[in-house]
Design a protein around this nucleic acid. Sequence first.
DNA 1: CTGAAAGCGCTTACAG
DNA 2: CTGAAAGCGCTTACAG
Lengths: 339, 339
Amino acid sequence: MPKSNKTPTINDVARLAGVSKKTVSRVINRSALLSEDTRTKVEAVIAELGYVPNPQARALALRRNFLLGLLHDNPNAQTVLKVQEGVLDAIRDTEFALVVRPVDRHSPTLIEDIRHFLELQRLYGVLILPPISENDALAELCLEMGCGYVRMGSAMLDDADHMVASNDREMVEAAVDHLVELGHRRIALIEGPKGFRSAHERREGFLAAMARHGLVVPDSARAPGTYRFESGLEAAGLLLDASERPTAIFASNDEMASGAFHAARQRNLRVPDDLSIIGFDDSPIAAHIWPPMTTVGWPVREMGRAAALKLIAPAEEVAGESRFPARLVKRQSVAPPKA
Amino acid sequence: MPKSNKTPTINDVARLAGVSKKTVSRVINRSALLSEDTRTKVEAVIAELGYVPNPQARALALRRNFLLGLLHDNPNAQTVLKVQEGVLDAIRDTEFALVVRPVDRHSPTLIEDIRHFLELQRLYGVLILPPISENDALAELCLEMGCGYVRMGSAMLDDADHMVASNDREMVEAAVDHLVELGHRRIALIEGPKGFRSAHERREGFLAAMARHGLVVPDSARAPGTYRFESGLEAAGLLLDASERPTAIFASNDEMASGAFHAARQRNLRVPDDLSIIGFDDSPIAAHIWPPMTTVGWPVREMGRAAALKLIAPAEEVAGESRFPARLVKRQSVAPPKA
DNA sequence: CTGAAAGCGCTTACAG
DNA sequence: CTGAAAGCGCTTACAG
């Protein structure tokens, strides 16, 4: 018997099962070349001893850690945390752990920093959140370093094994359809920042739906934003002060939509009576602002879970899914336009 | 010369420097027993080769990983993420990485789950966020497992080496003082959930300040909450429908304060003209709600950084600090009461 | 299908 | 102040 005050090692298992360490190793790693008898016998001893392979030793021998990395540039605290929860759902009761790594997408040494990080930590794989998930050089780096990766984003930027995406474009179309059905014709857009694929997708969805309905979008009905609250406030100000005031605004995310609420209030415009507003993300503020905001919600946690499974259990069914539909969450910031 | 296509190991350094591996190891680990000459020579070779010790190998030999863990029960996404940023500030350019571990404080197997986690991952140390940082059994577990730990919280629950705390009680007193100075007398409290130390501290601060000003707090001026938006809405409803309506409300966090804003609006009460509101946390919603909310902000990121430094560099100056003063962030949800 | 030997890249007693 | 040997707990070729 192994000394009971120490955690058992592969040697203890081998001795008690009467096999070599190598055979125990084969059981741990689910090698196919094993007689059913041997496997059963070894598994019994493993269970009896409560043996768990030491991750540090495996990491050294395999030159690969049992760690998943989360690379992000803090787009939104709530999103990052939900992704973390999703990843945790996937790795619960496995030997994997989650390492987080916030980065600065504007750093000139971004790629080199991450290269060093991957080299040092020898991660099993990384999940990359938008907007840095849109950086192809980063994906190539992972490939080159032999590090698994899955990108999260608003459109399929990579093959299904390396991508988990929402359907932003379609959902914004649906949001515009919703406004048009209620009778809105002058619908304005607050755009996301240049260089963000999600901003691009949402704008294209908006313009496509407007075109489909035969509605024109004058320049005065489009305003740039940065995804930040202040930019939404400013953009909505521009939109609302135009000669042809819109009856509805689609803001490319909830934070900017919140800014639009403020801009409306500053002009004594009531939401939704005088102005309908739709946001995107279904972040907490959408439910907590007054009146509660209609917005597009996407399954962040599920996407995080699926992304992690693609990395650690590609055979599982969920791991095969790459497209995750969002949905329109109807609340009280939308009403028919006043006659 | 080592093969240039491989990352250099301690053997390469030893050979080139003409010393034993052990001596190189001493340099890496900053052993005191080393001649200045040897140290300089070895450091030169390390720099030339760009040698970085392999963390996996060190982890195996030391039975300890160069990983910091973040144990939390998702009190607030923004807070968790800011702590992560603070920790990253501390471990930047070190060999440490940050592992996150959300837990469920209500799980009956909480301690056993964490024990297993610590046993498996052999973390260097963990940072524990409130409210689970208030769990003494958890701290004892860390001690027992030989895992460093630092708790974050609203009061000193442990000695300075294991604690980083804000001064919630004082700050709530300051918030009440502010209201009293403006002329408020009927000030109500929305409490945080039972069992949260922060809720306790904030309530005690509130009551102490009211007593100091000689103001009574009838039962009708205290309402329970859960730190969630909905509970703030409900609690404020109770408070505002009481016969002696308060002219100001202190809510124990911003989320509940946001609920109070809604409750006021539902009753056609204007903030701050008819009702002043102060929250706690300085979360994004405080700045984005209308009107912008006066609240207590605490230095979450700095506290995260200090906590991490206590773990990895106890000698550094910042690592010695344990008390982190919050401050009152004055915005527009507070005004003198109407005559 | 199974095993003995060597190795992953470090550190820990133990000497000297 | 410095080093040779053994060990941390696994896996990888290589045999058989």
